[in-house]
Amino acid sequence: SEEWVEIALRLLELGREANINGTILNLHKEEIEELIRRLLKRI
């Protein structure tokens, strides 16, 4: 399964939302940290 691709796409999506909203992603901080942890486990 290409889970890391899904994770990377989700991170990009959150990054785009952050640019549009001008936020520092506090809302998504925990989700982002969890996604990155899952991503690093696969490398």
Rank of each mutant, 00 (worst) to 15 (best):
H28R: 02
I32S: 00
R42A: 14
L12P: 00
R37I: 10
I36S: 00
L25F: 03
T23E: 12
R38V: 07
L39A: 04
N26T: 04
I36N: 00
R42L: 15
E6I: 11
R10L: 10
L25S: 14
A18E: 03
E31T: 01
L25M: 08
N26Y: 11
R37K: 08
I7N: 00
W4V: 09
H28N: 10
L12E: 04
E17W: 09
L40V: 10
L35Y: 02
L11N: 00
L25W: 04
E31I: 12
L12C: 15
R16I: 13
E30M: 07
N19A: 14
E17N: 08
L27E: 08
N26L: 13
A8N: 01
I7K: 02
L39W: 03
T23D: 11
K29P: 14
A18P: 03
I43D: 01
N21Q: 07
E3V: 11
L35W: 07
E6D: 06
L40I: 11
K41E: 13
A18D: 03
I7P: 00
A18G: 06
L39G: 00
I32M: 04
I20Y: 05
I24Y: 05
R37N: 04
K41R: 14
G15C: 14
E33L: 14
L40E: 05
I7S: 04
W4S: 01
E17V: 09
E34K: 05
N19V: 15
W4C: 10
L12V: 06
G22E: 13
L35M: 06
W4R: 02
R42H: 13
E33P: 01
L9D: 02
N26M: 07
E13R: 04
A8Q: 03
N21Y: 02
I20N: 05
E31F: 12
K29M: 15
I7H: 00
L12H: 03
L40H: 06
W4Q: 00
E2G: 12
A18C: 15
A8R: 03
I36Y: 03
A18W: 09
I24S: 11
E13S: 03
K29F: 15
N26P: 09
I36P: 00
K29A: 14
E33A: 12
A8V: 14
K41P: 05
L27A: 09
K41I: 11
N26V: 08
W4T: 02
A18L: 13
E34P: 00
L35V: 02
L40F: 06
G15F: 15
G22D: 12
I7W: 06
L27P: 09
L35N: 00
E17H: 06
G15P: 01
W4G: 02
L12D: 01
E31A: 11
R37L: 05
L35D: 00
I7D: 02
V5G: 02
L27T: 11
E6H: 11
R10D: 03
L40Y: 05
S1L: 15
R10Y: 09
I20L: 11
E3M: 07
R38Q: 10
R16P: 04
E34D: 10
E2L: 13
L14C: 14
R38Y: 09
L40Q: 05
E33V: 13
G22F: 04
E6Q: 07
R38H: 04
R42Q: 09
R38N: 11
R37F: 09
I7C: 15
S1H: 13
E30A: 07
L14D: 01
R38A: 12
E6Y: 07
E30P: 02
L39Y: 04
N19M: 15
R38T: 05
R16N: 08
E31C: 15
N21V: 12
E30Y: 04
E2P: 11
E13K: 03
N19Y: 14
R10A: 12
H28W: 15
A18Y: 03
E13L: 11
N26G: 08
R37W: 10
I43H: 02
N26K: 02
S1E: 13
E13Y: 07
E30W: 04
L27H: 13
L11W: 06
I7Y: 02
I32K: 00
R10T: 03
L35F: 06
R10S: 02
E13M: 05
K41F: 08
G22P: 14
I43W: 10
L9Y: 06
N19L: 15
E3L: 11
L12M: 07
E13F: 11
L39Q: 00
R10F: 13
S1R: 07
G15I: 15
E30Q: 08
I36L: 06
R42F: 14
W4P: 01
H28V: 12
H28M: 15
